[in-house]
Nucleic acid binder design. Sequence first.
DNA 1: CTCAGTGTTCAGTG
DNA 2: TCACTGAACACTGA
Length: 277
Amino acid sequence: MPELPEVETARRAAIAVAVGRRIVGVTVADDTIVFEQVSPARIRRALLGRQVRAVRRHGKHFWFELDRRPWLSVHFGMAGGLHTSRRRGVRLVSTGRRTEPGWPPRFTKLRLAFEGGHELAIADGRRLGRIRLRQDPATEPPIAALGFDALRGLPGAARFRELARARAAPVKALLLDQSFAAGVGNWIADEVLYQARIAPRRPARSLSDRELDRLRARLRSVVRVAVGARADSDRYPRSWLFHRRWDRRPGITVRGDAIRRETIASRTAAWVPAVQR
DNA sequence: CTCAGTGTTCAGTG
DNA sequence: TCACTGAACACTGA
């Protein structure tokens, strides 16, 4: 689920629920993996009674600025998500699709109750996500090591070319590298390469100025459109590779062209050889 | 039952 | 040393 658009959508949902409100209830799951080496008691102590001032994001990480440090920093891993609830019912945010009833949601790791009856839960069925406490998340690991944010920090064309040309790795690997473009995940990388008409195995260093300009323009566009759709994939343009990328049935095409799947940089790349060179 | 998976880290390799 | 790759992590769902 969570690449930049899903995390940005979660951030906005968290803002609506939490900003300006005080945390009046904290429930922490007993999970030493998701919480790394932070005890439930310490999480509770850091959060209970705090007021949320803002919710920030960089790449796939987001964090809560509180009226006292440390602050709460969250990464969803591969299967995490943010859920919100009002008195009426439950809303599943950030993962789209299937909305499960019930509160708290399955696999809830952290549950926060706010003044006024609003609640927020962070769930993670696969435990690859991480919830941390940091004095200043933006300047400490792991966020400090990230590259430009793919939504708000996209470099100019000249700088983008320079960054990309410094790398010999396949361009697909470059896009997935969070120290290059923070927030890009497997489907965004494939979508961007498809729209830019660049084959995923091309060494980043080998791309022409025009190709890198196209790559940058499509990266900007795909991320913006997905965020604009609030990460609701049903609202992504029908022309996007996205809608066909996981369809395993034989003979699946995009605009009449066959889709190929192969492993690049340890991930499954879906691409269209007839279009991407 | 097996395997892939919208992610990241770290050991191993060249 | 640097850059890159792939296994490991942990669990669900097809």
